[in-house]
Design a protein around this nucleic acid. Structure first.
Length: 587
RNA sequence: CGGAGCGUAGCGCAGCCUGGUAGCGCGUUUGGUUCGGGACCAAAAGGUCGAGGGUUCAACUCCCUCCGCUCCGACCA
């Protein structure tokens, strides 16, 4: 491709719309242009890179035995009613009506469509296992589209679905996809690591997310350097603290650790206006860990209390899973008033008449401070065992750096990551709704066991840039680069140089090498800057000066120095170099 | 949905407080000098100042409403 004839426009300034580096670079290098919030056009350069990612995914899916299909993005809402997700996906789904007033949805994902499809196509165990996939545009009415392609309203996703005869067989399908994912991200030049994850609204029992480590990532990742345990913060567990609880009432500075003494009797303290932990820390002049926070939740509409240490946060995902609930939300003021008999800010576990779950770290908790269920009042010397009736002690809080690993007990770290892929074991959640059954070898009808597997294709592309760039621009891995080679024609008016470039371009094209020829009437400096910005892995400079010295200059985006290569050897040198670069990414 | 900020030429921004001829840099076009890491000189094109309403002799500027974009939050008692 000739630059002078293409729609490649680079920008000198960072776009005002972008916050994170990969987003800025995508716009500056002319890969994408914004239409509106969360909606982007792929420009020629961006689309080429996107196709490279798609093709890698396609090859690895095919290798893993999955078959490519293409399902409609426009779907009847009735399908979603059958699975019950019309309600749970709620406002996240784009809905519209056709001219017959039938409610339709723009597919945010395809479990319903594919299960309906396979329920019709598969009759016998002989047809199983079966894994299908598609690469397609998805639509989600995101609360807050962000960071360019990272969280968009319309994006491209690879979604795959496996169907098996048994849980064990489904495990094998899951493993095949898991392995394929590892290969895909490796081939994309990404350092992506699998972590245990929550399953969310999609349902199912178990899942792994593939995370690209990046400070700009939207997810927290808990990670144990000692044993390799890694989990999304939403799911991450921690080992029980085991008797190392801080006890002692801060009003009695010399208090003996609670475990070895009996707790003083309950006492009320007037705490006017002290509603938050911060207020209380100031009031009692002690650490937040001396308090027990009492959170009143509505769990599927019923009030439930959760007790967590004052310095910790409740993990709603864990709480929801623990209770097997569909919906967990903080109770409104009226409910809190009704349940506790006090305004918001003074709830406590003593005397509460609703189910009360406490974090496992509070087991044996003695001599803590809690709300008194009475306006402007807190209780001191609270002993959970003596003074309250806790329904159960469970792991309820958001794990953070410094907590103990649930596997080995060593100290956990916290990092941030971009979720580029997610693999789920769904079980029979959807096959039940759609009666997706087959006949087994004894002629009996059984439900198929499902798995589903997603990769955010557009997000993966941006994650590559987020992870691979420098101050001058993008550094593409050869596998996803829009062009393997940028060939800079430094003297477009010099017929000799032009002839060399023409010949080299042709030779490369014949060998299947993607080459972008910068034939613009620009000064060399502009071309060098732009070549760095768009970040193709190999730069070839053809100029009168170089030719006089014996050839063209070949330089990697990642290195400072170039090699002067005679023109007649240039094409071979380049193809060998590309082979080497590609090989370094293959598993 | 709550909070904050922003909307002026293709892009990045100033002007607004204190109302009175719409500006700068980049980019674009033309001519010239340049030519190996974002050149220089000269000329030119390009804007109903997000939209609507109000105040005023006069509104980019002040007031109101709406729309769009970006960021933070949407759970901490």
């Amino acid at each position: 491709m000739r630059w002078s004839r293409s729609l490649i426009a680079t920008l000198r300034d960072d776009p005002q719309e972008a916050e994170i580096v990969s987003h800025k670079l995508m716009v500056r290098a002319g890969l994408i242009r914004k239409l509106s919030g969360g909606l982007y056009t792929f420009m020629p350069l961006g689309l080429r890179a996107l196709h490279k990612v798609s093709q890698i995914i396609r090859e690895e899916m095919d290798r893993a035995g999955a078959q490519e299909i293409l399902m409609p993005a426009l779907q009847p809402a009735e399908l979603w009613e059958r699975s019950g997700r019309l309600a749970t996906m709620g406002p996240g789904m784009f809905r519209l009506k056709d001219r017959a007033e039938r409610l339709m949805a723009l597919g945010p994902t395809h479990e319903e469509v594919v299960t309906e499809l396979l329920a019709g196509e598969v009759n016998s165990y002989r047809q199983l296992p079966c894994t299908v996939y598609q690469i397609q545009t998805k639509f989600r009415d995101e609360i807050r589209p962000r960071f360019g392609l990272m969280r968009a309203k319309e994006f491209i996703m690879k979604d795959a679905y496996s169907f098996d005869t048994s849980l064990e067989a489904a495990d094998a399908s899951y493993q095949a996809m898991y392995d394929a994912y590892v290969r895909i991200f490796t081939r994309c030049g990404l350092d992506a690591r699998p972590v245990e994850a929550d399953t969310g609204d999609i349902g199912g029992k178990w899942s792994h997310e593939f995370m690209v480590l990046a400070d700009s990532g939207e997810d927290g990742i808990v990670d144990c350097p000692a044993c390799g345990y890694a989990a999304n913060q939403e799911r991450a567990e921690r080992a029980a603290a085991g008797g190392s609880l801080p006890g002692g009432c801060p009003l009695e500075a010399a208090a003996i650790p609670a475990a070895t003494t009996t707790c003083a009797p309950l006492a009320e303290v007037a705490t006017p206006g002290a509603r938050t932990i911060d207020d209380l820390v100031a009031f009692f002049t002690c650490g937040a860990d001396r308090f027990i926070k009492t959170l009143i939740y509505l769990v599927d509409g019923k009030p439930v209390a959760a007790l967590v240490p004052g310095n910790r946060d409740l993990n709603e995902h864990k709480f929801k899973r623990l209770l097997g609930a569909k919906k967990v939300e903080l109770a409104d003021e009226a409910t809190i008033q009704k349940v506790t008999g006090a305004p918001v800010g003074f709830a406590g576990p003593v005397g509460l008449k609703i189910p009360t779950y406490a974090d496992q770290g509070l087991k044996g908790a003695s001599d803590f401070i809690t709300g008194a269920n009475k306006a402007d009042t807190h209780l001191i010397h609270v002993d959970l065992a003596r003074d309250t009736s806790v329904t159960a002690f469970e792991d309820l809080i958001v794990v953070r750096a410094g907590d103990a690993c649930p596997r080995c007990g060593k100290v956990l770290q916290l990092k941030r990551g971009i979720e580029v892929g997610h693999v789920f074991k769904l079980g029979t959640k959807y096959t039940e709704s759609f009666e997706a059954k087959y006949l087994n070898d004894k002629g009996q009808s059984e439900l198929m066991v499902m798995g589903c597997y997603g990769i955010g294709v557009t997000r993966t592309l941006q994650a590559v840039i987020e992870q691979s760039h420098d101050a001058n621009g993008i550094i593409w891995p050869v596998s996803v680069a829009p062009f393997a080679v940028t060939l800079l024609l430094l003297d477009p008016k010099d017929p000799t140089v032009c002839a060399v470039v023409d010949t080299l371009e042709k030779a490369l094209q014949e060998q299947g090498v993607d080459v972008l020829v910068d034939d613009r009437e620009e000064r060399p400096g502009v071309k060098f800057k732009d070549a760095d910005l768009i970040g193709c892995p190999i730069r070839v400079v053809a100029g009168a000066k170089g030719l006089a010295k014996g050839g063209v200059e070949i330089k990697l985006r990642t290195s400072k120095d170039f090699d002067l290569v005679p023109v007649e050897h240039a094409a071979d040198t380049l193809t060998a170099l590309i082979r080497k670069l590609t090989a370094s990414l293959n598993t």
